Simulated assay, not measured.
Amino acid sequence: MLSVSLGACALEEGDHEQMVNLQKVKDDPAAQLQNLNAAIENSKRDGSLYARRAVALLRNGELDKALQDANEAVKFTRNEPASLFVKAQVLRAMGKSEEALPLALTAERNSYQSASLYVLLGELYLQRKEYEQAMEYILKAQELSPADEFAFYYKGRVQEATGDTLNAVRNYKNALEQLADFVEPKRELAAIYISKGNHEVAKPYLQQALRKAPRDAKLWYNQGLAYQAEQKADSAIEAFTKAVSINDALPGAHYKLGLHQLNLGDPDAALEHLQKAYEAYKGKPEYLGKLASAYERAGYYSRALATYQRLVEIEPNMTYAYSAIARLKYKIAKPMPENAAVSIQEQIER
């Protein structure tokens, strides 16, 4: 999802700022790039042309090339705020949010006023979980562009992150009123409704979003949750597997797949998934219990013991964990043949 400022004559001083949703740009991308290539060939020191081509390349997903052009734009325009903003957009798309933020802030400090800049700053602060600062910039964006679909969307994201799902739903729907095929609000609405058990309400949002964005891992994760609620276990596992094939860093899907493998009696396969969910779920007693069980069943007794001990630190009322701790201490201390001890030690070190 990208929103970039792009005027008719790009970023030259005095041009009118225009909010453009890249998905709605009507120019043929190949023709646009061809024209920009020719223009840059005739004027190799025109920073505004590099900025325009950076935007075109960003829209095409050619991020490395887009960054090269953004750097040229910054150089030839001598750090013009609009060029800094374009570079910040490219860095954000590359997942380099910490590099994007200071550039966007510099653009703002140099009197660059743009709804899309404020939306970008709101998103970057949202990623840092600085919700008050994020909302401040979203509200600034709405002052300049009250009907901006991205401002509505990120306002909803901030509200959802701070527990205000009622207003988040309202703003996601406001975003869709401005742009009916906007995927991300549909994804978030589907997730909220699924979490509340309103699966029939979630279904159309989920189906429409998946048709538009079949490579969105979070959508496949939510589809898996919906299948689970419908007791379609095989379809749910297929959806979770699809999700991690797209994004291997999706902890919820890994947790579900780990539970599935544990139920199948394959603790080693379970651990491959459960370990990838650790950072997101390490404070959840149920998860720690499953992880400890998988370690024990796979023969990693020391790791199982440490995990059960963490479990009772978080939730002292988990009485079964105390029995497991005593059992594991006995297993670890119990004398065994030398070759068996070597085997267990090798497993622990793995």
Rank of each mutant, 00 (worst) to 15 (best):
A249C: 09
Y154E: 12
Q345S: 14
L22F: 06
M135Y: 07
S114W: 01
I246C: 05
M19F: 10
E72R: 14
I314E: 06
K24F: 13
Y221Q: 14
L117I: 02
R327Q: 09
Q178V: 03
R128W: 08
N21D: 15
K242I: 01
Q18P: 02
Y287D: 07
K44G: 15
S111H: 14
W220M: 07
N198S: 14
R297G: 01
G299D: 04
D15H: 13
D164E: 09
L6Q: 11
P146R: 00
A100R: 05
R170Y: 10
S302K: 14
V90G: 00
Q228F: 11
G252T: 04
L210A: 08
K129F: 08
D268I: 13
P285F: 05
A190I: 05
N317G: 07
R350D: 13
V55L: 06
Q142V: 03
A191W: 05
K186D: 08
L305Q: 07
K129G: 05
Y301R: 11
A324Q: 10
A93M: 12
K276A: 02
T319M: 11
E286C: 03
K155T: 11
A141I: 05
L166K: 15
K26F: 08
F240E: 03
R297P: 01
Q261I: 06
D148F: 09
H260G: 03
D15W: 12
E143H: 12
R310I: 05
A115P: 07
S111Q: 15
S323N: 11
K173S: 12
L2H: 14
V169P: 00
I325N: 08
S114V: 00
R59S: 13
D268F: 15
K155P: 02
A147K: 12
Y205N: 09
V342D: 12
K282Y: 09
T165Y: 11
G224P: 01
L33V: 07
N247I: 03
A239L: 04
E41C: 05
E272K: 12
N21I: 12
C9L: 14
E99H: 05
L288N: 06
G122L: 07
A298R: 03
K173L: 11
